[in-house]
Design a protein around this nucleic acid. Structure first.
Lengths: 203, 203, 203, 203
DNA sequence: TATGAATGAGTCTTCATTCAT
DNA sequence: AATGAATGAAGACTCATTCAT
């Protein structure tokens, strides 16, 4: 079989490809990979079913390309944040900002998060993407902290734990709503935990 | 139309039903729900496809029943642990034990974890199961701590964060193997974070 | 393959067979042959599915035997009426009685009529049964008329037409309810038509 | 999920859809609805099974569309006959024509009649179709009669009875062949009965 | 005799992918 | 480059019938 996936040259063709990725990725995020079929994707992208296979090897390809294109916005919006300067006294504030940013982002694309996280757990390439970006995120945070005078003392581990704490908090706030849980208190406890992690830097 | 689902009476039939759940749940855990078909399940359970539908409403039913039967062992093995007594001085040790227990359990059923967690993110009933048990787990830990003299000061929130920390650590250890991460250090940081959470109790 | 259909000798066995026929035929009459399965039949007859195949060759067999057993009551209740004596002046009354008898019978087993008539149109043996009884009915009516002084002048044809008229009327009354149709008038027209058929005898 | 049913645009596709209806309806008429499967239909129409479900919701849909397309030719060919003018003296002739028309039509699609009539008795939508057309037929006949000077005196009832008489006759001629029945005589008796129904108009 | 467990061929239906135009 | 028609393998599920006990 010939590999006849064509990389579009013309502007219109490029736009068409983008449109398919967008439509496909959105549908997959809304309904899940297995509950989305190519006919729907084509329809939503206002193209024919046939054309899909001139731009993409298969349905899976759409997912992966969609993930690469839109994944960062959903999972790692903070990756775009660079060169943050802050006073150590205001570390609290920074954390609060991050948390709020995270939470509001979660809320926006609630189902997308769910569906893609599902695939992180079941699909190798999605997992690969996710963990790679997570690592980038860790490194990005490390650099921010280093550039603000934090010392490189087990920093990777600390940042990883910190991210886990924030993620867990956001998840709780966005989905579960365990009735007996007070999110203000939780947030304060999380912030306190993080400050404890970096106590050597903050004293 | 008749309600086809029959509860088997004969011993051999009961065993067969169990066998189908086991085979089905295992396959789903290994390969994912959508990549497992009823013919495979039947074959692995050494039964005909027909019998599957006498004991189960549909494929999904097998998943749910399998989850109820084996899920606790995979996700919440500690739920069986009750009446733990410990000296506050040995809180470290207890935490280390828990972490090791968790990690070894993760390692045993690596893919099961992944596949089921995928469904927690995409399927309502699986999510329901998971979060319910998670809550039970939280409550169980709360009681253990209370019975060992910890005070009920935002205990739910603290325990939830603690579980998140442990979970995150285990996950990291079992899957990622972020090359630059030192798990001993991470473990110590996690333990320290937890102790910090309960500093009022441990002073 | 051995033909191991057994004719039951013991009283209990005979009753069981009857029960299966009754249950099966009733279900078929209610829901149609293709919408009735053997499990349902067995359940309704309070027997096991296995036993069914010791008394009957197959599902079809139940239908045929049921038809032979209960069909007459549904389709040809008048077959039991013999030795009717009437005065020619009262022919009207007789016809009215017949019609009412027919109609009330139709109403009792409305769906049975529908379902079995469906099979008259699609199944050879059901058709065979039906037309045979229809012939018997014709002959029976012929004899009644002859024994009351009617002459044998194209009597078969007349009776057949008469039966068609009554049948058609009953059907209309029982099912259609064509809103604009006055059944009293229709009945009178039918009776008048029949009397016209036999005008040579009634003058 | 998407609404899969597509209305074909291309000429060839339209023909293919027609072909499927034709093949499906024919098979159902020959062998019955439950004895016809989609694979056979596809094969007879020289298409793949998949395409069937792009044009039709399900097997049942094929039946209904087939009925709407071909049903009139089979059941109500006379519906096309309009603006009939006749002299009351020739009412006999008209009736004979009708009867012959009916009979020859019955003979052509013998099994179709049987199978579809079976469904009239067991399926709501088929029944709906049938009785609706029957009503149209009645009305059409009424108008013909009215336009030829018949008076509107219980005309609906009379026409309905008349149709029943003709139908019954045709059925007898086409199927039963009750050996002892003389169809010429029967035909004459039927015609005489009809004329008697309309005696007020014909005197 | 009787049970109900077990079989597996058969049915409808879906959908990723390819083809003809 | 584009369309949308067409393919056919694969899957879930049913059910008449047979089998083991």
């Amino acid at each position: 079989m010939i590999d006849n996936i064509r990389e579009p040259r013309q502007q219109r063709a490029i736009e068409k490809k983008e449109k398919i990725i967008e439509a496909g990725f959105n549908l997959i995020c809304e309904n899940g990979y297995y509950n989305t079929n190519t006919a729907e994707i084509a329809k939503k992208a206002s193209v024919s079913t046939g054309i899909v296979y001139q731009y993409f090897k298969d349905k899976y390809d759409i997912l992966i390309l969609g993930l690469e294109k839109y994944g960062d916005d959903i999972f790692f919006p903070m990756l775009k944040t660079k060169d943050v300067k802050f006073d150590k006294k205001d570390f609290d504030k920074l954390l609060k900002q991050m948390i709020n940013h995270y939470i509001s982002n979660h809320k926006v694309s609630n189902t997308a998060h769910e569906e893609i996280m599902a695939m992180v757990h079941s699909d190798k390439r999605v997992a690969e993407y996710y963990y790679k970006r997570e690592l980038e995120m860790t490194n990005s945070l490390k650099e921010i902290l280093l550039s603000n005078g934090f010392i490189d003392d087990n920093l990777s581990e600390k940042v990883h734990i910190m991210m886990g704490l924030i993620d867990n908090l956001c998840h709780e706030v966005t989905y579960h709503k365990h009735s007996d849980m007070n999110y203000n208190i939780m947030e304060n406890l999380v912030i306190d935990s993080i400050k404890n992690l970096f106590k050597n830097d903050l004293d």
